[in-house]
């Protein structure tokens, strides 16, 4: 028996969510990846590896529901990603649990838990009081990775039920490091005029040993990339985020607020992104980025 279940695909999420055992008590992890199971078992009382051909939320949800009834958990924890939100919704429906998403802090007060969550597109935060059963989705960068436990948890493998729908999956093209794992991320927005101009963004990212990504319009409307950063895309928390030609709309900013340092390059002095940046370079990106690349090369050459 455990008091909570956590779901994570990435090992870094598994380590972060494990830190909630301080508040909730013993947690078991559910993960689809057997590769990570051994590493994850150092952080959890128990690890369930749920094997699936491809991710299909209803069947993964069913597998989690079975584990919930076996373990008697009343708290379910997910990363605040698209998949995490889907599973939180499905399990909330199944268990009659209130879902709380975009959680940036959790504390307790007697029997109750107080979740601080983002709302209004990330412009505001609010405290929500809940009692178990509940599900919660934790924002990227909200938690620090946990320490390992004294003894490794047991690992159990399960098969998820067959999906009721047909699913085919094409993984994101991995061009170098992925933005969620990189220490430096360069993000490009609609200030970039043509697809070819993304080459300089990629070059800048490469010089900094980091990853590149875009805002949603560049990916979803123009098809210049197969993922984007923001509330409906990737949530990142690098050491350095460089936003190039990005206005700083809340839906995008919610995905980058966990960054340690934010730099913005924008030619509109009044762009909202400057309010949320440590260093705001006011200027034409087509002039600034090439100089940045040149100077970084000089430094690397030395």
């Amino acid at each position: 028996m455990v008091s909570a279940l956590a779901y994570a695909e990435e090992i870094s999420w598994a380590k972060q969510l494990a830190s909630l055992s301080k508040l909730f008590g013993d947690i078991a992890l559910v993960t689809p990846l057997s590769d990570n199971a051994e590493e994850a078992s150092k952080y959890y009382k128990k690890v369930y590896v749920v094997k699936t051909k491809t991710f299909e939320p209803i069947s993964v949800g069913k597998a989690i529901e079975n584990i919930v009834s076996k373990e008697g958990a009343k708290i379910l924890i997910f990363p605040c990603t698209n998949k995490g939100r889907m599973l939180a919704g499905i399990l909330s429906g199944k268990l009659g649990a209130i879902p709380v998403t975009d959680v940036i802090n959790v504390s307790s007060s007697g029997e109750k838990f107080i979740m601080t969550k983002l709302t209004f597109g990330g412009n505001a935060k609010v405290d929500v009081e809940v009692e178990p059963p509940f599900t919660l989705c934790i924002s990227a960068g909200a938690l620090k990775e946990a320490e390992t436990r004294g003894e490794a948890g047991e690992i159990e493998e399960l098969e998820a039920p067959e999906p009721q729908i047909e699913v085919s999956f094409e993984p994101r093209k991995a061009e170098g490091v992925s933005p969620e794992k990189a220490e430096v991320v360069v993000g490009a927005g609609r200030g970039i005029k043509k697809k070819e101009d993304l080459d300089m963004i990629k070059e800048l990212a490469k010089l900094l040993g980091g990853a590149w990504s875009v805002t949603r319009p560049l990916a979803a409307d123009y098809g210049w990339a197969d993922s984007w950063i923001g509330i409906s895309g990737l949530m990142i928390s690098p050491k350095l985020y460089i936003a190039v030609g990005i206005s700083g709309q809340p839906h995008h900013m919610m995905g980058v607020r966990g960054s340690k340092v934010i730099v913005a390059i924008n030619n509109d002095e009044s762009a909202p992104i400057f309010e949320e940046s440590d260093y705001g370079v006011v200027g034409d990106l087509y002039k600034v980025v090439p100089v940045l690349i040149k100077k970084l090369k000089e430094r690397r050459g030395r």
């Binding site: 505001a124 609010v126 405290d127 390059i265 949320e276 440590d278 705001g280 200027g283 034409d284 100089v291």
Partner: peptide, 24 residues
């Protein structure tokens, strides 16, 4: 649901501006 302390959310940032309009 009980909602309390609804306030603006800002991550404190240094907000240092660097002018690159003339000398890039």
């Amino acid at each position: 649901v009980t909602l309390r302390n609804l306030t603006r959310y800002v991550v404190p940032r240094k907000r240092i501006k660097i002018d690159a309009t003339e000398n890039v």
